[in-house]
């Protein structure tokens, strides 16, 4: 046990890996096999043009709906993370408000085809050009770059599950009431992540590479907030009346 914190046994870490991985697979929205079978389905040029010619508010609404659907799965994942539901309700909400979109972005690498630089969206694989009508080319291109770099790490489902839990349990979020409790859960999750990386014989500094993703995720989410705020300034009524209520709660 020399390589782990003395208060967490190997058996406990194995259990945490198992539980987190099961929670991830039960709530991951799409199975890898399903996605693999769909990987040949790419949008045709006229379909791409049809997305590009949509009014910005229609495309924004469509993306808000897709993000909200993905977030609902992340909420289910959070509920199954060991210790999450033992946190106070304030902290459960704080962690999901700050971290749910980050986990959606982490999970996106499962839906991403690096070879074709495309992501599974609205029934087929879409390149960045499909999202042109949103008017946020820079953000979209950064999201695609992020997905590509996550893919290049070739994380297993176990590793992805623990990294997602690690992100959700970030103890440095503002407005936490029981910060210490969250910190303990996050440290245990980090140990389990380290444990599974060692077990999978990854000696390429994968943990450090994952730690670097934390700031990239925060930057993407704050840029999403900025873009939403700019959109809302032009189309306040569309956001108020047509956007999913959960999306407005989280990002409003």
């Amino acid at each position: 046990d020399g390589d782990t914190c003395p208060t967490v046994s190997m058996a406990e870490l194995d259990h945490l890996v198992q539980v987190t991985s099961k929670s991830h697979l039960e709530t991951c929205q799409y199975l890898r096999e399903e996605l693999h079978q769909m990987s040949w389905q790419k949008f045709l040029q006229d379909e791409v043009e049809s997305y590009q010619s949509k009014p910005p508010e229609v495309m924004w609404q469509l993306c808000a709906v897709k993000i909200t659907e993905a977030i609902q799965y992340v909420v289910e994942f959070a509920k199954r993370i060991d210790g999450f539901m033992d946190l106070c309700q304030n902290d459960q909400i704080v962690l999901l408000k700050a971290g749910s979109l980050e986990v959606v972005l982490v999970r996106m690498c499962r839906l991403f085809d690096s070879q074709n630089n495309s992501v599974y969206f609205d029934g087929k694989f879409a390149g960045p050009d499909v999202f042109k009508a949103l008017g946020c080319d820079d953000l979209i291109s950064s999201v695609f770059d992020f997905a590509k770099s996550m893919c290049s790490l070739h994380l297993s489902e176990d590793e992805l599950a623990l990294f997602s839990a690690f992100i959700l349990l970030s103890a440095d979020r503002s407005w936490l009431q029981e910060k210490l409790q969250v910190e303990k859960l996050q440290q245990k999750t980090e140990l389990a992540l380290q444990h599974v990386l060692q077990k999978n014989q990854r000696e390429d500094g994968a943990l450090n590479k994952l730690r670097c993703k934390v700031s990239a995720l925060r930057s993407l989410c704050s840029r999403h907030a900025e873009n939403l705020s700019a959109f809302r300034a032009v189309y306040p009524d569309i956001v108020r009346t047509h956007f999913p209520p959960l999306y407005k709660e989280l990002f409003g």
């Binding site: 289910e76 304030n90 909400i93 408000k97 407005w175 959960l246 709660e249």
Partner: peptide, 17 residues
């Protein structure tokens, strides 16, 4: 916070399926 996040709170309260 709970008041401002009624849907999220509700989702958290729903039992896991």
């Amino acid at each position: 916070l709970k008041e401002k996040h009624k849907i999220l709170h509700q989702l958290l309260q729903n039992s896991t399926s």
